[in-house]
Simulated scan of single mutants.
Amino acid sequence: MMSLQTLNFKSIFALLALYIGWGSTYMAIALALECFPPFMLAGIRFILAGLIFFLWSLWKGIQFPKREEMLKICLAGFLLLFLGSGSVVWVEQYLSSGLTSIVWASLPIWLVAMDRKRWKFYLSNLKLISGLLLGLLGVILLFADKELIRVIENGTLLAFMIAIFGVVCFAFGSLYSKNISCKSTTIFIVAVQMIFVGVLSLIISLSLGEKFISHPGSSILNSILGLLYLIIVGSLIAYFSYLWLLNVLPPTTVGTYTYVNPAIAILLGWWLLNENITNPKILALILIFIGVFMVNYYKTKIPKGKPGQLEYKNHICTK
């Protein structure tokens, strides 16, 4: 299977940042939305996180990309952060975090469907495809409580469709970002994308007349803490890890974080909040982790390419 010699601990740490970090941001978004309107929240979050990375890049004297590369970086950021991650913030005004996580669990499927160059590679790996479908089934079982029916009854079908659109844009942006040829570092790329999307979000926020909300029952402190958590964990750590992982792992492996995120939420609720875990949820968790294991550790034969080309075998990553 996999030996310790083939383990890439940077990749494992980055995957854990996605699994745990982004798994907990759904709740942070819900807290922040109590006082921050969606576009204002996205603007503040991305600009502050982007400036931190940008100042770090200046301090390190990182080379600026060319104009053509900057345009490609901004387009990738628009797809990933504005249309992708931004849709999560907007739809959570109308959908629960649980249902939103179900929609995003389809991300690995979209990545396979859009990655035409690797169709032959994907379809030749029965374990990989089976792992993707098994993980998706596990996520659906976690929230099999007729919530989809309530979405239609409550008139929030539009939000549900926008959530799906956001996932599709995120998948397309992931593949587009993976194929961008840029001499700059991942930190600077993340900085440019976040500042661009943050400014765009604030412009839309001002045009819509969004205002900071403070009403009875809302907690300003919790909202600010939620915003800080989104900046530090959701943006600085997890998003940087995501873009970095796209350069060293197959997109389907990186996308498995959408399976683990809801499972992490369930386990944290059981551990910290004494929430009950039913037998169907236990089965769902088992299916999710088996699916992720199959995606990460399938065996395949890949022809060797040019020197320096990545080869994905029966371990996480060798480079």
Rank of each mutant, 00 (worst) to 15 (best):
T6E: 10
A14H: 14
L16I: 04
G21E: 07
G23H: 01
M27G: 00
M27V: 04
F36Y: 08
L41K: 08
I44S: 10
I44Q: 02
I47S: 05
G50L: 11
I52E: 03
I62G: 05
F64W: 09
P65S: 01
K66I: 08
R67T: 06
R67S: 09
M70C: 15
F78L: 15
L80E: 11
L83M: 12
S87G: 15
V88Y: 02
S96K: 10
S97I: 07
S97Q: 05
T100Y: 08
T100F: 05
S101D: 06
R118G: 00
F121D: 05
L128V: 10
D145Q: 09
D145Y: 03
I149F: 02
G155L: 08
G155F: 13
L157Q: 06
F165C: 10
G166L: 10
V168L: 08
F172D: 01
S174A: 14
L175W: 02
Y176V: 00
C182W: 07
S184P: 02
V190L: 09
Q193A: 09
L202S: 10
S205L: 04
K211A: 15
S218G: 08
I220R: 07
I220F: 10
L230V: 08
I232P: 02
G234I: 10
I237Q: 07
Y259T: 02
V292N: 05
V292A: 09
T300E: 14
I302T: 14
K306W: 04
Y312M: 07
N314G: 14
N314I: 06
H315L: 04
I316G: 03
C317V: 12
T318R: 12
